[in-house]
């Protein structure tokens, strides 16, 4: 029950952050908030027993994503323009979508229901938990599933990351620094050349 309470509090906190992001005009603050959001999310994942997910979310959501967002902000601008009127159409779409989703949750197994079909499926969930030690032989079931049972998905995931790099490379490219920008760097280069000559 404490667990449930913690999650509820944290989730409510997330909602507050999310609305903060909607309303704030300062993009820098929004980015920082989304970093906090990810960190909170990681905490929730820990409580939900998804330690690997939490780990990743902390590293990616709070770490790398924030750095990229900050990088993009320094290259563009920090303030969001004041929007003249609220977008009621978007509000309608979102409300409908949300209502549909909530309607769908009504038949979901309750949170933490160990007997749900998803958690009891003999060939998936239970197979991984019961047989992976014999079949794969490593303690972390998530890694077993990730790298062996569903290794093909992970291959796809790796390719996605690779694609993103190709995409960003093709868009931004690696532009060479001009020398005068960093005299110290220049000195180092020379030093290195000398070393090679020696």
């Amino acid at each position: 029950m404490t667990e449930q309470l913690v999650i509820m509090v944290l989730l409510s906190f997330l909602v507050v952050i999310a609305f903060g992001i909607i309303l704030l005009k300062d993009l820098l603050v929004a980015v920082i908030l989304s970093g906090i959001y990810s960190l909170t999310a990681a905490a929730i994942f820990v409580v939900m027993d998804a330690v690997d997910v939490a780990f990743t979310e902390a590293a990616v959501g709070a770490g790398v994503s924030t750095i990229f967002l900050l990088g993009a902000l320094t290259l563009t601008r920090r303030q969001q323009k004041q929007q003249k009127h609220n977008n009621y159409f978007a509000l309608l779409v979102v409300t409908l979508t949300g209502a549909l989703l909530i309607y769908g949750t009504l038949d979901l197994p309750g949170y933490g229901d160990g007997q749900s079909i998803a958690n009891q499926h003999p060939q998936l969930a239970q197979h991984f938990l019961q047989k992976s030690e014999d079949e794969i032989g490593i303690p972390n079931v998530v890694t077993s599933v990730l790298a062996s049972y569903r290794g093909y998905d992970t291959l796809g995931e790796t390719v996605v990351v690779f694609t993103a790099a190709i995409g960003v490379l093709s868009l931004l490219g690696l532009r060479r620094r001009k020398r005068e920008e960093d005299p110290e760097l220049d000195a180092k280069r020379q030093c290195r050349q000398q070393n090679e000559e020696v």
């Binding site: 997910v53 990743t56 979310e57 998936l124």
Partner: peptide, 17 residues
Amino acid sequence: SNPLPHVLILTAIVVGV
């Protein structure tokens, strides 16, 4: 806990970033 959703979400996080 069921490990399968965790694996799926690891993939989805990567796709997201």
